[in-house]
Design a protein around this nucleic acid. Structure first.
Lengths: 217, 217
DNA sequence: CGGCCTGGTAAAAATGTTTTCACCCTTGAA
DNA sequence: TTCAAGGGTGAAAACATTTTTACCAGGCCG
């Protein structure tokens, strides 16, 4: 569906090199390694090519991170199901920027057993994230749980619902409440303090209500 | 051939984290990332663990290179489902009779996201059941959760493991302990009393350790 | 022509990452 | 008791990697 723009010859060389290096070496190449492969003397040449590749949706990058390139491979139907197995997408890195366009890029499928989804919730509206702290232990939700969250604007979320919320790019689950023109978030654990934000505050982003949960034991 | 030395608990934690990070993120973790995951404050702590892992042949490292860790792994097809989506079976009615031959009849498939299964557990050895009470709330396992259990004889289950057990055809999860020739089952919730059985007692049947969990919210 | 895109060189700045050095603590075997 | 191995803290040094800034050149298009 993301009809990715065509690549120039040079961009394609870079993309293919990244792919093969990641597969062979077990990790993506550095910018300098790419440059060496292309015979470039300046890392900035590569940098610009990468910016182009990212803009066209072929790769994703994590800023400032060594080898922070992820190949977005859109192929691989994986197996035959009516139209693919029931799955949601999980962004590789969850930042507020990613969360605001979560289906745009950087995703890998997570299988979801339909039985554990509430009726009436479309998988297309959902994405998967990993819970970042133990604030909701009392509600049976723990750090490192994989939760399925339905993307929704906070104004559509009923008070008292468990939501996924990003506090400065930290992914956590909290009980949500809108009151007095502010958003309130309560953990179930008393040792976590409740937080309260202005709806416009960039430090806080409500992804939506938690719909399902998976855990490895 | 590589009769690799056994790992200490800590070393194993590091190894497993590297493996899962490499698979999920598409690149190995940095030393600092490993340290953060283990709760260490000094990168040198991790460094020493890595030296040990390399010495025992579990990983390989490239000096001075960022994320220069290679997992020496014999298995790991990484992701390719050639024969159908990953799934386990759920018996329609769980009685001790069914549990003893769970694949015999009345089963329907339950999709399992491979990421939430511990490494080394075969889906073929597993089945899915619905938890029947709230005795393990303190461990984050609740009534009506769908759990994946690996079928195993109680004698193969280490003490302290969370297991699915049938008490007179009631399906519950308990922490398991074998001692003094008897089987002991503790709930995490203090209001549930611990139970203790003779291994031959028909009123109690240990299905096996809990491996994964799914919940509708 | 002039503007814009793509792709480059060069060099420095800003970060990230790995190594090393100097100590400390606990545990279990000699 | 002493010693070695496994694990840790902290901080600094040594590298590796990514970003930024400045400047240049060719192709293409209106």
């Amino acid at each position: 569906m993301p009809v990715r723009d065509r690549l120039t010859e040079r961009q394609n060389q870079v993309f293919e090199f990244i792919r093969s290096h990641a597969r062979d070496a077990g990790r993506p190449p550095t910018i300098v390694e790419i440059g060496r492969h292309l015979g470039l003397r300046s890392s900035n040449g590569v940098h610009k090519l990468l910016v182009a590749l990212e803009g066209k949706g072929y790769i994703e990058r994590v800023r400032h991170e060594a080898r922070g390139i992820t190949v977005l491979d859109d192929d691989a139907p994986m197996f035959a199901f009516d139209d693919g197995p029931p799955s949601v997408f999980m962004p590789r890195a969850v930042t507020s920027a990613v969360a605001k366009r979560p289906l745009a890029r950087g995703r890998q499928p997570v299988l979801v057993e339909p039985r554990v989804m509430p009726r009436g919730v479309a998988l297309d509206d959902c994405l998967a994230v990993v819970v970042g702290d133990d604030g909701m232990n009392g509600d049976g939700i723990r750090k490192n749980d994989l939760v399925v969250v339905e993307e929704a604007d906070w104004s559509d979320v009923p008070n008292g619902t468990a939501v996924v919320v990003l506090f400065d790019d930290r992914v956590v689950v909290r009980r949500f409440e809108a009151a007095n023109g502010r958003l309130h978030f309560r953990a179930s654990d008393k040792t976590y303090r409740a937080e309260s934000f202005d709806p416009k505050d960039e430090a806080c982003y409500v992804v939506g209500p938690v719909r399902a949960l998976m855990r490895r034991l």
